[in-house]
Computed example of a mutant assay.
Amino acid sequence: MEKIQEIIVATQNAGKVKEISQAMRHLPIKVLSLADCGTFPEPIENGGTFEENALLKARYYAALTGKPCLADDSGLEVDSLGKAPGVYSARYAGEHATDKENNHKLLQALAAMPEAKRTGRFRCVLALVESGDLHGFVLTTEGVCEGEILQQPRGEHGFGYDPLFFMPKLNKTLAEVTVEEKNQISHRGQALGKLVDKLQEYLK
């Protein structure tokens, strides 16, 4: 593998790009967003797992941009809902659902659920590929963050289900912590930490 000098973050989500840029700020790698490279059609995410979808997206955008790409697939697994919404987290309430619509559907699904059965976790898999080639360099990492689903949102930061995801140890939701705090404790933060550690070894 050649030394990676820049990485395309394969997402249209500005919040994710900000988190990833913050986590990788000490690496000699320029972090770019898809918006920096042009306008591209989105791939069809038909993987059955977070890892399959992350690799699918990373390879798709690497092939289009000709640059190393980092993609993530992450979502919420609620125990009492059979680990739903899972890989469908971003489109839980429909193909182009907003965060508000997804949160509303989740609250409805858990409306009659007692507090003890509102446990769940955020899971994230990051996939970094050097090219769109199936046989090219691949690096994957995973992070998991355990918590509970509140009955109403709290906090102004974050995105997605963050305002509903409560962490008892912190007595806060993921929407009530700073980006720096989130990178230390969240599912994506954990996966990013592992990725940064591995990249530092490759870049030596």
Results as ranks from 00 to 15, higher is better:
residue 2 E to S: 05
residue 2 E to T: 03
residue 2 E to G: 01
residue 4 I to W: 01
residue 5 Q to H: 14
residue 5 Q to C: 01
residue 5 Q to M: 01
residue 8 I to N: 00
residue 9 V to F: 12
residue 9 V to L: 08
residue 9 V to N: 03
residue 10 A to L: 05
residue 12 Q to I: 00
residue 12 Q to V: 00
residue 17 V to K: 02
residue 19 E to F: 08
residue 21 S to R: 15
residue 21 S to N: 06
residue 21 S to G: 15
residue 24 M to Y: 07
residue 24 M to L: 15
residue 29 I to R: 08
residue 29 I to N: 13
residue 34 L to Y: 01
residue 34 L to I: 14
residue 34 L to S: 07
residue 37 C to R: 15
residue 39 T to P: 01
residue 39 T to N: 12
residue 40 F to M: 09
residue 40 F to Q: 12
residue 42 E to H: 04
residue 44 I to C: 11
residue 46 N to V: 07
residue 47 G to Q: 11
residue 47 G to D: 12
residue 50 F to I: 02
residue 50 F to D: 05
residue 52 E to A: 15
residue 57 K to F: 01
residue 57 K to A: 05
residue 57 K to G: 03
residue 57 K to Q: 01
residue 58 A to L: 11
residue 58 A to H: 03
residue 61 Y to L: 08
residue 61 Y to D: 06
residue 63 A to L: 11
residue 64 L to P: 01
residue 64 L to W: 00
residue 67 K to Q: 13
residue 68 P to L: 07
residue 69 C to Y: 12
residue 72 D to C: 01
residue 73 D to H: 02
residue 74 S to N: 09
residue 78 V to R: 06
residue 79 D to P: 04
residue 80 S to K: 08
residue 81 L to D: 13
residue 81 L to I: 09
residue 81 L to G: 13
residue 81 L to V: 11
residue 84 A to T: 05
residue 85 P to E: 09
residue 87 V to A: 10
residue 87 V to Q: 11
residue 88 Y to G: 07
residue 88 Y to S: 11
residue 90 A to D: 04
residue 90 A to G: 09
residue 90 A to S: 15
residue 91 R to N: 03
residue 92 Y to V: 04
residue 92 Y to D: 06
residue 93 A to Q: 12
residue 94 G to D: 07
residue 95 E to Y: 03
residue 97 A to P: 05
residue 98 T to D: 13
residue 98 T to V: 13
residue 99 D to E: 04
residue 101 E to Q: 15
residue 105 K to E: 02
residue 106 L to E: 07
residue 107 L to E: 09
residue 108 Q to P: 02
residue 110 L to H: 12
residue 110 L to M: 15
residue 111 A to W: 07
residue 111 A to E: 15
residue 112 A to W: 07
residue 113 M to A: 03
residue 115 E to W: 00
residue 116 A to E: 14
residue 120 G to A: 00
residue 121 R to D: 00
residue 122 F to G: 01
residue 122 F to W: 01
residue 123 R to G: 00
residue 125 V to T: 01
residue 126 L to F: 13
residue 126 L to H: 06
residue 126 L to A: 04
residue 127 A to R: 02
residue 127 A to T: 10
residue 128 L to Q: 04
residue 128 L to M: 06
residue 132 G to S: 09
residue 133 D to E: 09
residue 133 D to N: 14
residue 135 H to L: 02
residue 136 G to M: 03
residue 136 G to K: 03
residue 140 T to N: 07
residue 147 G to F: 12
residue 149 I to M: 04
residue 150 L to C: 14
residue 152 Q to G: 03
residue 154 R to I: 07
residue 155 G to Q: 12
residue 158 G to R: 12
residue 160 G to C: 08
residue 162 D to C: 11
residue 163 P to N: 12
residue 163 P to L: 06
residue 167 M to W: 04
residue 167 M to D: 06
residue 167 M to N: 08
residue 167 M to T: 14
residue 168 P to S: 12
residue 173 T to K: 05
residue 173 T to I: 08
residue 174 L to I: 02
residue 174 L to Q: 05
residue 176 E to C: 05
residue 178 T to Q: 06
residue 181 E to T: 02
residue 184 Q to R: 15
residue 185 I to K: 00
residue 187 H to R: 12
residue 188 R to K: 09
residue 189 G to W: 01
residue 189 G to Y: 05
residue 191 A to R: 09
residue 191 A to L: 10
residue 195 L to V: 04
residue 199 L to I: 08
residue 201 E to Y: 04
residue 204 K to R: 14
